[in-house]
Write a protein that binds this DNA or RNA. Structure first.
Lengths: 348, 348
DNA sequence: TAACGTCATGCGAACGTTCGCATAAAGGAA
DNA sequence: TTCCTTTATGCGAACGTTCGCATGACGTTA
């Protein structure tokens, strides 16, 4: 597997190999005819600069590291594919590639991998996703002053470039939409209070209730694991409340909980979207096929992937932090059958 | 961002830097006390060999390239996450990482990217997935004699290392399972005949019918796009056949078609799994939540990811093709509610 | 005591680039 | 004619390793 080197090009073009390098990298002006000779030699020999040699000399790998926490067994990550593809494509346009490496549950071990990639010079920067409160990776990378961009925020004090979806806005839209459909007892299926993403989304719930003039009923807020089973069980408990306390709408902070809730409703012989409306979050492609199809909140994943890479590449090329440092993107409410307006059947 | 080099370690351990290199790579025996000095210097300085320099000298990148065709909009790839994670982890154990790059629809353009990665020396080998008949990438890599392993087969003549799921076995199991449940008119929802994966799976359908002593009814075989819509429509047409020609079971070659079929059945006021059984393929995590939950065929994705990498790493390290060259893995039938035994209601 | 193997380590070169400075040729001003 | 600029290209070094061979010290044998 013989590779063409810059020296062969130089020999063919009858210049020194250093000159070839300069011409290729547009570092210097040469006579048009020299340039012509060089470029045609490059063409004819099919020369491609050796990536490794280039990195060694320039001390840059033109590689971005990324890992993500794997989807728990029995679930799918609805945005992973699109997120990755959008990053790959955007990175390629600036001459970067993504190095993907395994996720390790154990914090210590995970940081070791980050350190390894930095110390061996394999990557120039990282993309982090699922950033949480007090994120060890954020702290580590800030300390080492190594470039990275987060998809998701951490503590308010941690200053670093990130892009995030404003989940609050999404949930706000859901609640208002339900309110306009005549719903007045709007319950929430949420994560525990130590979830950053969860709190962000819940803020939209609280704000919307307030703006609609509805009271906050703590018995209508359930917090748990965020999966189908929890959604089912929590909803089941709502349905065991006295009639007047039962919700007529349920806002779930993700699609899995929403699906669980829908199942619980159906099991009681009720129809989601009629007696009780349900909304989800994430727009898992599957939910359009549910019966009834699920109203949910969609994140502009493609744009996010693009933006994350653009922010990181800017840092790497310009050597300074992007401005603005952080970006919040509003998600979009997708209305489907599960949140029809309330039909006044005279009940209550 | 000062990095520790091998020379600093050498200085500290009071040996030549070449000796440090040899000790680190276990290329030579030294006095125990020398080794001790070297290792503790490594430890104290936190030395990590520079990846780029190492690659340049050894002409190996210890990097594996991978790309995949993105999931069409509105669908999710149920196995992507697990497949990637298993590859990352297995690769890491042998000191490799995966370089992921964008997928380009256009064949020409896609091959350019493969060529680029080869010529610039960025990767040592590739993993290909969704290999099809007459696959341009296979041909290209074989010609250039560049190492790769496929997840999926191509033409029978193309000789290259691959691992594949024996879809035929999976469908065979489905059909036999349905037969044992008393089903006798078993329809198939398939892809067009130019689909390699499709033909492999269909072979199991034909073999099973034969082994069960059932005739092949061409009116019970529908071929199309492989999505939800096609499944719905094709099933709907089955249901418009005269009663005696209608299927009492439907084997879909993927879960999306199965879901479409289930919806069509429900729309006729029938219950999937009772009057008409339905099975899918892929075990998309979502299908366990359908009502009724879907019987389907599960591929051992984790094992496949592991094996693919092992085969490739073997090639890279040993310089020879793995033996056996190819591996076929049987999938597993997951029985759920949608394929209950037929209850003899006396109809027909 | 000379000759020889063996063991532990050192040394120079190479991998394929980029970078900064040196230099030769050509042109213009004094 | 001399000297100074400018322009086009060359040259040596460096990036941080690994590799193969060289070498010096030591012990063994005749």
């Amino acid at each position: 597997m013989k590779r063409v080197t810059i020296k062969e090009v130089a020999a063919k073009a009858d210049v020194s190999y250093q000159t070839v390098s300069k011409v290729i990298n547009h570092k210097v002006e040469v006579l048009p005819e020299t340039a012509e000779r060089i470029w045609s030699a490059v063409e004819e020999l099919g020369y491609r600069p050796n990536y490794t040699a280039r990195s060694l000399r320039s001390q840059r790998s033109r590689t971005i590291g990324y890992t993500w926490s794997p989807t728990p067994h029995g679930l799918t990550n609805p945005i992973l594919d699109q997120f990755l593809q959008s990053m790959f494509l955007t990175a390629e346009q600036s001459g970067y590639y993504l190095l993907c490496f395994p996720y390790h549950e154990e914090n210590e071990r995970q940081l070791q991998v980050y350190a390894e990639l930095i110390d061996t010079g394999r990557v120039d920067g990282f993309v982090l996703s699922s950033v949480e409160y007090n994120d060890a990776r954020v702290q580590f990378l800030l300390e080492r002053e190594f470039p990275f961009v987060g998809f998701g925020r951490s503590d308010d004090e941690a200053l670093f470039p990130y892009i995030d979806v404003d989940g609050g806005v999404g949930v706000y839209q859901s609640v208002v939409h339900l309110y306009k459909g005549g719903r007045r007892q709007i319950a929430a299926l949420a994560w525990p209070e130590d979830s950053r993403v969860g709190n962000n989304r819940m803020s939209g719930y609280f704000n919307a209730l307030k703006d609609c003039g509805l009271p906050i009923n703590t018995h209508l807020i359930a917090r748990g694991a965020g999966n189908y089973e929890f959604g089912y069980q929590a909803c089941d408990e709502f349905l065991q409340l006295p009639r007047s306390l039962q919700p007529d709408a349920i806002v779930a902070l993700n699609d899995y909980m929403a699906m669980g809730a829908m199942a619980a409703i159906q099991n009681k012989g009720l129809v989601p979207g009629e007696e009780i409306a349900v909304t989800g979050f994430d727009d898992n492609p599957i939910v359009q096929y549910l019966r009834p199809s699920l109203t949910t909140v969609q994140q502009p994943i493609w744009d996010i992937g693009q933006k994350v890479i653009e922010m990181l590449v800017y840092q790497l090329e310009e050597g300074k932090l992007p401005d603005p440092l952080c970006t919040l993107i509003p998600p979009r409410l997708i209305v489907r059958q599960s949140s029809q307006p309330k039909t006044d059947t005279g009940k209550e």
